[in-house]
């Protein structure tokens, strides 16, 4: 008898949390439907706007062409953007490595980890573009502000990611090594980093990809040169849709190359370690 009773019990009982979640989802969907129905389109003809946009897309993606930029120029500008991404990831990674060690709960005292985690959470909460603009006050709009701002945000992002990777190593393993007389730095380099090297790498590549995308945006928004600035000039100044297409394709191509390299590197490291 008892067994049957148990079988009828729902797998997921309706708790307060799940009820709140359902109500929240319901309210959000109702709001979305209402907003779509009640939007004031005024003079915009939705059909025509849609068609024009698609037409622009067609020009951008099916008829890319170089007018202002030669292919070599475009390539060189992408390299500049890539450099910006590389530099900010490198700076960010080195600083975050140290902060990450101090923010990992199995490696540092609780007060220290709390302070650092709180600090980087604050930095992360502000978008990187805002940090660039904040630093532009001191450094002026341009590549310097972009590097500092992006580095700043990378540090906070990677500190969180690294410290969580470090925390994967059980506290008791560290205790075991301490009991054999090893000191903190030895444990870090001989146990903690080897254990987390693959996740450190994948987080770093992840950030590199984010920084590449950010660097494109910074070229436009902060005048940090690179392909993003060309994109900005083509779209906002020359209205050259066909060149926008070319530049976009360049960026996509590079992003794919980056992705391929990172996937290969990661699998190589994983195989070596296995």
């Amino acid at each position: 008898m008892k067994k049957i009773e148990e079988a009828i019990l729902p797998v997921k009982p309706l708790t307060r949390e799940s009820l709140t979640m359902w109500i929240l989802l319901l309210v959000l969907s109702l709001l979305t439907i209402y907003a779509l129905a009640a939007i004031d389109y005024t003079s915009v003809d939705m059909g025509k706007a849609m068609a024009d946009t698609l037409n622009n897309f067609k020009t951008i993606f099916f008829h890319p062409a170089a007018h202002r930029l030669s292919l070599w120029d475009a390539f060189y500008e992408v390299l500049i953007t890539m450099g910006l991404a590389f530099l900010t990831t490198l700076f960010g990674g080195v600083i975050a490595m140290l902060l990450g060690l101090l923010a990992a709960q199995n490696l540092a005292p609780k007060q220290v980890t709390n302070i650092i985690k709180g600090f980087v959470a604050f930095i992360r909460a502000v978008p990187s573009i805002l940090w660039v603009l904040i630093f532009a006050v001191a450094a002026g709009l341009g590549s310097v502000a972009a590097v500092i701002g992006l580095t700043f945000h990378s540090v906070s992002y990677l500190t969180k990611a690294y410290s969580e990777s470090f925390e994967e190593l059980d506290r008791s393993v560290i205790e075991a090594l301490m009991a054999s007389g090893a000191n903190w730095w030895q444990i870090i380099f001989q146990a903690v980093i080897p254990s987390s090297v693959s996740s450190l790498l994948s987080w770093t590549f992840m950030r590199f990809e984010i920084n590449f995308a950010n660097a494109v945006a910074m070229g436009a928004a902060a005048g940090a040169a690179g392909i993003g600035f060309d994109l900005f000039m083509d779209s906002g100044f020359y209205f050259d849709l066909r060149e926008i297409g070319l530049v976009t394709y360049f960026i996509i191509a590079f992003a794919i190359v980056l992705e391929t390299i990172s996937t290969n590197l990661k699998s190589k490291i994983l195989i070596k370690k296995a």
Binding site: A176, S180, A182, N183, Q186, I187, Q190, A191, P194
Partner: peptide, 30 residues
């Protein structure tokens, strides 16, 4: 629970027992 570094090889884990005898730098470099 053994408390070994799971992602390292047997010999690497065994050699960890020597870290206490080493200078910080030699230990860090392994």
């Amino acid at each position: 629970h053994y408390n070994l570094v799971d992602k390292l090889s047997v010999i690497e884990n065994v050699l960890h027992g020597r870290l206490g005898y080493k200078s910080t730098l030699a230990g860090v470099m392994g």
